[in-house]
Computed example of a mutant assay.
Amino acid sequence: MTTSTLDLTGTAARAVHLSKVYGTGDTRVVALDDVSVDFATGQYTAIMGPSGSGKSTLMHCVAGLDDATGGSILIGDTDLTSLNDKALTRLRRDKIGFIFQSFNLLPTLTALENITLPMDIAGRKPDKEWLDTVIDTVGLRDRLGHKPTQLSGGQQQRVACARALASRPQIVFADEPTGNLDSRAGAEVLGFLRRSVREMGQTIVMVTHDPVAAAYADRVLFLADGRVVDEMAAPTAESVLERMKQFDGLGRRS
């Protein structure tokens, strides 16, 4: 896969000596162990690793959805660990987009209403030109008046993607975004995410277990035992799968 020319002059998000520990004593589990990693502006990063490797915990901490035990997390130049709950909520609303495995659409709203919902809640009017660009890129112009039950799974996830991008966030986090989709619908969503990076300058961090999905990214980070153990640029499904074979069933490097 050919990697596009990217503007890597900025850092959209950064984790510095990040740790996350659950429990104490005999039940203590180290989910993240001194992780330091940058996510460059305008880059599509996939995070992979065996079950229990810490990949979802890393994304949740960097996205401000979970508290870190130690270290710091920066979105742009703002340290999340220094924010109170109200300021953190505002930062997530204004600078971060989220795409989840379950589409999280409101069934009573149309596709367009679901897309603009976060901005409506914040009392902000969408940038019409940007919104039109997102809608056309996601390919749902003729489905804007439809409610989620009138849309296919792939179309619903594309609505969720458009919702994440509509407010022009600094970074979008996607947690297994194709997990509930068939291969064709998944390819449509992944293709849209890649276009949003290459054509719209978006920054995306995606957790996935699927080597095919990871191959849409510009780079792949591999986690094991709560640490970043490898990184791959210009991944292919085959090269990612070969790397994943080096982990045993317990998530350790073999």
Score class of each variant (00 low, 15 high):
238 E>D: 15
153 G>M: 03
121 I>A: 01
246 Q>C: 07
44 Y>W: 08
213 A>M: 05
168 R>Q: 12
128 K>T: 12
75 I>T: 00
104 N>F: 06
106 L>C: 09
192 F>K: 00
91 L>C: 05
100 F>T: 05
156 Q>E: 13
111 A>V: 10
146 H>C: 15
170 Q>E: 15
54 G>I: 03
50 P>H: 13
203 T>R: 04
110 T>L: 04
20 K>D: 04
68 A>W: 10
182 D>P: 05
17 H>N: 14
99 I>M: 03
36 S>W: 08
106 L>G: 07
46 A>F: 13
108 T>H: 14
129 E>I: 02
244 M>K: 11
213 A>S: 13
95 K>R: 15
116 T>V: 12
208 T>A: 10
69 T>W: 09
194 R>A: 13
243 R>E: 11
28 R>G: 10
46 A>L: 13
106 L>V: 13
109 L>V: 08
231 E>I: 06
178 T>N: 07
146 H>E: 12
48 M>G: 09
104 N>M: 10
90 R>S: 07
235 P>N: 10
212 V>Q: 11
254 S>K: 12
238 E>W: 11
163 R>W: 02
216 Y>A: 07
245 K>E: 14
236 T>I: 01
197 V>I: 10
215 A>F: 10
61 C>Y: 05
40 A>T: 03
130 W>G: 13
3 T>W: 08
115 I>Y: 09
220 V>S: 12
181 L>R: 02
182 D>N: 03
